[in-house]
Design a protein around this nucleic acid. Structure first.
Lengths: 233, 233
DNA sequence: AAACCATAACTGTGATCACAGATCACGGCA
DNA sequence: TGCCGTGATCTGTGATCACAGTTATGGTTT
């Protein structure tokens, strides 16, 4: 009997369909920058790679297309959107406002547990960034976890989901670039801005938290725009 | 030759698939409150009603589920999510912040054409609201067009899309309630708040525009919460 | 007349087939 | 040798079939 209870307890309240699994996988690839802007991907090809039929891939891709994380070209080719400089500027503007608001709100709404989790991730990211040859994939993951630990501390899950959609669009540009310029981890101000954000949240200082996150976003965006790797239009 | 040029000019750059069409149709139904929270809808049933096979409906529904505008219950039933009071409060908080920011930005970024369009819609909404027996569906449409005329005047299409997703969630609650309480059109402050917003945008006063839109959102939300028709939890 | 159980009719999910159109490579022509 | 046309191949989209599970229904029994 106890075994049966344990099983029913473990079973997730919503079972995960194959489409959900494929969606999660593609989402991770996009956020981590493993898929570069312009990369094409075929439904049948990815279906074969993932060992499923075309249907779950179709469902996952249609979701990502709806969120503008992927696009279907008029040629009927699914690819990661190629972002122009002005589109990237617009996305950065929206991110600074929305993520800035989230940080501000987190400063006054975060629980002690939230702050502890944020502090742990900040410490881990800082330690990793100062290594001579840091694991970039791990750095990307820690950076994401740190940011979303802050955003989820707002108590506004809708807001965190919106920001997730924004990161899905920005991921290919941001993290692909990071692979080409690993120095940004150390020379960029991310470590300092994260520390500022943590201190502001600890102090309950909303405006300071907003400023720190805004500076973090702006710093990375300016670096990428300066590199000039984005499309012209 | 001139005929060929004319044809290539007329042809839409992105052809619309059946899935897109079904998505647009369901989206309108949700935003207009024609689908109430808790309403179930079957893939085969709606497919037959719309005269297509199940596939386009599947794609459209999967998109709406991804955006939390629909949900699939563990029973494998697709339905409009039933919103609790706390969820509605959270959604309202996010809307006030994001739509408020958009209004603020529109006040400084709107072009003369943008302002003219906003003024036209404001006038039409006001005229309709003051009728003794206004067409509710038309009022909902005008209200939506007016708000999005403001949001699109920001020059930030990403922001307008985010707000569209928020309206998709709020639509069933807001506009279904409006059908039950048509008086809200006249007694609620919508007409006044819209006029305030237009005046602020004309004056380039960002904070005032933000305050007007925030008051508009809060007014409708408070009215609905006071009615007590939402789920308890 | 009320309760209960079996069966039939639905549900979404996944796989497979069909089709129009675009891409690409290969072979023939200039 | 360079260019163009043409067929094979691959693309996403739509339809249909199969399946496991839930819901509703109708008949039987107490």
């Amino acid at each position: 009997m106890s075994v049966a209870i344990a099983l029913t307890t473990i079973r997730p309240l919503e079972r995960e369909t194959l489409g959900d699994r494929v969606y999660g996988h593609l989402r991770e690839l996009l956020m981590a920058g493993r898929l570069a802007p312009g990369d094409k991907l075929s439904l049948r090809g990815t279906a074969e790679v993932m060992g499923v039929s075309m249907m779950p891939v179709r469902e996952a891709v249609s979701r990502l297309v709806a969120d503008r994380a992927l696009e279907v070209a008029p040629n009927r080719a699914v690819r990661v959107p190629i972002m122009t400089v002005s589109q990237f500027r617009e996305l950065t503007t929206v991110r600074i406002e929305i993520e800035g608001f989230a940080a501000q709100r987190a400063a006054t709404a975060a629980s002690a547990d939230d702050i502890a989790r944020i502090a742990t991730l900040e410490s881990a990211f800082r330690a990793l960034s100062l290594l001579v040859r840091p694991d970039l994939a791990e750095a990307v993951r820690l950076n994401k976890d740190l940011h979303f630990a802050i955003y989820e501390a707002t108590g506004l899950p809708t807001l965190a989901e919106i920001i997730g959609a924004l990161w899905l669009k920005a991921g290919p540009v941001l993290n692909l670039d990071l692979g080409a310029n690993p120095d940004r981890l150390a020379t960029g101000g991310a470590v300092r801005f994260h520390a500022d954000a943590l201190a502001a949240i600890r102090a309950g200082d909303g405006p300071a938290a907003r400023a720190a996150i805004a500076a973090d976003i702006r710093g990375a965006a300016d670096f990428i725009i300066a590199r000039g790797g984005l499309a012209a239009a």
